[in-house]
């Protein structure tokens, strides 16, 4: 079995801070420290985000590529999270193979009364590059930002636009690459 964070309290606070920074500034790529050991299927940053955010109150859905015995064992032990079979019932979703991920509308987008009760996606991608690629505007972005994502299908961007149109409902996406994390919350508008 794999060891968890060396200092569970401070390390998860540091990771949370990095995710917060990324969420507050969509499109910014923020470096994140990971646990000393990582399941083979996951990037270090992906494992870090799971360890910091997922716990026994947040049902987690894993895509088939993430569902390795090693990942299941580590997440069950260190996060204590229920692992659900249905995308709908999940508070967090961990996607390792972004090219075959379910469409964003398949996840729980919350309700108009409680838009906060929606799913957050942790999507692992090959690379994230700031100041290149798609144009992003919205809260947290001065003027516009740009983010290039290597490893997502083209339909992902159209789905993000639909996700934005559903506001206040919708899902928030945390993209994870070896270089760090970047966030695309539902408030962000994706241009060309």
């Amino acid at each position: 079995m794999l060891a968890g964070l060396a200092d569970p309290v401070l390390d998860s606070q540091r990771i949370f801070r990095a995710v917060l920074e990324a969420m507050a500034h969509p499109g910014r790529v923020v470096a994140v420290e990971g646990p000393p050991e990582t399941p083979r299927a996951l990037h270090r940053a992906a494992a870090a985000v799971c360890l910091a955010l997922v716990d026994l109150e947040t049902p987690l859905w894993l895509d088939p590529a993430a569902r390795t015995p090693e990942v299941l064992e580590a997440l069950r032990f260190h996060c204590g999270c229920p692992i659900v079979e249905e995308v709908r019932g999940a508070r967090f979703a961990l996607v390792v193979d972004a090219r075959s991920m379910p469409p964003l509308e398949a996840y729980d987008g919350g309700s108009d009364e409680y838009p906060d009760r929606s799913a957050t996606l942790i999507v692992q991608v090959a690379a994230l590059t700031a100041d290149a690629g798609k144009r992003l505007t919205g809260p947290g972005i001065a003027g516009e930002a740009r983010l290039a994502v290597d490893g997502v299908p083209e339909r992902f961007w159209a789905e993000l636009r639909d996700n934005h149109a559903r506001f206040p409902r919708g899902v928030d996406v945390i993209l994870v690459a070896p270089a760090g994390v970047a966030a695309l919350p539902r408030t962000t508008e994706v241009g060309d």
Binding site: M1, L2, A3, G4, P8, F77, H78
Partner: peptide, 8 residues
């Protein structure tokens, strides 16, 4: 042995 979790 190595520590997997804790002691906490």
């Amino acid at each position: 042995y190595r520590l997997l979790r804790g002691p906490e």
